[in-house]
Amino acid sequence: MRRSTTILRLLAALGVVCSLARAAGAQEPAFGRTASESQGTIASTGVWQRVLPAAGSATARSNCIIQDTGTHAMSIFFGPAAPATNATVGFPLAAATTSGSFNVGGGWITCGNMGGGLTNGPVWITGTSGDTFEYASQP
């Protein structure tokens, strides 16, 4: 009889531990974050235009990606202000290519830094007037 009481107590304790673990898990935030996706068009050749504003804090942006979908190469600049119109700075993005009847897309870049972390400042783009790009940001 004593042995069955001990087993019942162990099962009851296991039930309490499982219910506490489940309650603690319910308090965790949901996986992932919402993302906003959009397209843009280069307004004026050689002029830097803002793709994304600065994130509100060092942890506000969890990621971003920008892809050249136009027929000419573009450049991306991460910084607090747009470079001068004739500036030769930024990261180059290759022009989009076609395969059969659809656009494969060109070069792309993310807001991730090589040493870890993210670039949370404004993101700027320049290229040839009329060319398109796509971008997504969280948030």
Score class of each variant (00 low, 15 high):
Ser57Gly: 11
Arg50Ile: 01
Ser101Ala: 14
Pro83Met: 05
Ala87Pro: 07
Thr41Glu: 13
Thr88Ala: 14
Gly46Met: 04
Ser62Asp: 13
Trp108Val: 05
Gln39Arg: 12
Gly106Tyr: 09
Ser75Asp: 10
Ala95Leu: 11
Phe77Asn: 04
Ala54Gln: 09
Phe102Trp: 13
Ser75Cys: 03
Ala84Ile: 04
Ser62His: 12
Leu93Ala: 05
His72Ser: 13
Asp68Tyr: 07
Asp68Val: 04
Thr69Gly: 07
Gly107Trp: 09
Ser36Phe: 06
Ile66His: 10
Asn103Tyr: 02
Thr88Met: 12
Ala81Trp: 02
Gly107His: 11
Gly70Met: 03
Met74Pro: 08
Arg50Val: 03
Ser38Ile: 01
Thr59Arg: 10
Thr71Phe: 08
Cys64Trp: 13
Ala54Ile: 02
Gly40Gln: 03
Gly90His: 05
Ala55Pro: 02
Ala60Glu: 01
Thr69Pro: 01
Phe77Glu: 02
Ala82Gln: 08
Gln49Val: 07
Ile42Glu: 00
Ala58Pro: 01
Gly90Ser: 07
Thr69Lys: 13
Phe102Pro: 03
Ala82Asn: 09
Ser44Val: 08
Thr97Trp: 12
Ile66Gln: 04
Ala94Arg: 14
Ala81Ile: 09
Thr98Ile: 12
Thr98Pro: 00
Ser101Met: 14
Ala96Gly: 12
Phe91Leu: 15
Gly40Pro: 03
Val89Asn: 07
Leu93Met: 09
Val51Ser: 02
Thr85Val: 13
Asn63Thr: 10
Ser62Ile: 06
Val89Lys: 09
Ser75Met: 05
Gly56Tyr: 02
Ala81Met: 10
Thr110Val: 08
Gln49Pro: 02
Ile109Arg: 10
Gly106Phe: 09
Thr71Glu: 14
Gly79Asn: 07
Gln39Leu: 08
Pro83Leu: 04
Glu37Pro: 01
Leu93Cys: 06
Phe78Thr: 08
Gln67Thr: 12
Thr45Gly: 06
Thr98Phe: 09
Asn63Ser: 13
Ile66Met: 02
Thr85Pro: 11
Arg61Leu: 05
Gly106Gln: 07
Arg50Asp: 01
Phe91Met: 11
Ile42Val: 07
Arg61Val: 00
Ala94Glu: 15
Gly106Cys: 12
Ala54Tyr: 01
